[in-house]
């Protein structure tokens, strides 16, 4: 029974968070494990590697970023960041360090669980799945490198396709500016965020019903972009 329930480690120093997150995770079919400090969390990861980690950045004993870095030495599962709005930089740095996504406090439990599901799905898709993604009337086939809108092929430049593919592959998770720029333009262009604006604009023109109010290619202000599929 327990083997079927994914193990989720929650690292947060606020007992009130555990108080509602534990029952919520249980109700959603996960097995929550509680850690109040970064040190305890790291010990838990080492002893019993969880399927995913929910990590608060504002921990009393260690910078959340530093904790993530240490965990990465022996853990490659998805890490979801809990953060406050005023810790923007830390959040981005954590994502660049390999956290899969983030949720800002205060948050709806439903939103957190949706991000958690996406993160876990991503882990499963590594084994090779979901080659075709649907979003509204748009269909993206990553194997055939084909993009269709209402059944008609959409012409994309190689760069536009690369960018879209990176976002689709992330499976609904946020991809930071730096990650996108490194993947599509190469490491020399990590600071040229304006490229991204232009190309995402092009993609929206070609794929979105209303490019001014995008539904699939969503901006995470100051952090990056995410592709929201059906």
């Amino acid at each position: 029974m327990t083997a079927l329930r994914p193990l989720i480690l929650v690292v947060d120093d606020d007992p009130q968070i555990h108080r509602f997150l534990a029952p919520a995770l249980e109700a959603a079919g996960y097995e929550p494990v509680r850690a109040d400090t970064a040190a305890a969390g790291l010990a838990d990861i080492a002893n019993r590697p969880p399927d995913a980690v929910i990590l608060d950045l504002g921990l009393p004993d260690m910078d959340g970023k530093a904790a993530l870095q240490r965990a990465r030495a022996f853990y490659d599962g998805p890490v979801l960041i809990l953060s406050a709005r005023d810790r923007e930089m830390e959040k981005i740095e954590a994502l660049d360090l390999g956290a899969v996504d983030y949720v800002e406090k205060p948050f709806h439990v439903g939103e957190l669980l949706a991000r958690l599901r996406a993160a876990l799905r991503q882990r499963l898709s590594h084994q090779g799945a979901r080659a075709v993604v649907h979003a509204g009337d748009v269909e993206i086939d990553l194997v055939k490198r084909l993009v269709l809108r209402a059944g008609e092929p959409v012409r994309l430049s190689p760069r536009e396709y690369e960018l879209l593919a990176r976002l689709v592959e992330a499976g609904g998770r946020v991809v930071t500016h730096r990650q996108l720029l490194t993947a599509v333009w190469g490491p020399a262009n990590v600071d040229d965020v304006q490229y991204l604006r232009v190309f995402v604009g092009h993609l929206r023109q070609k794929l979105e019903t209303d490019p001014a109010a995008p539904r699939f290619l969503v901006t995470d202000s100051g952090v990056g972009y995410r592709f929201v599929a059906d």
Binding site: D14, Q16, I17, R19, F20, L21, P23, A24, A27, A28, G58, A84, R85, D86, K105, P106, F107, H108, V109, G110, L113
Partner: peptide, 21 residues
């Protein structure tokens, strides 16, 4: 920001847990 958000997180988190589950 800290002292307003921390209790708000609990209120919002607990309330949405109750609504969803």
């Amino acid at each position: 920001s800290h002292d307003l958000r921390t209790p708000l997180s609990t209120v919002l988190g607990s309330a949405t847990t109750l609504i969803d589950y």
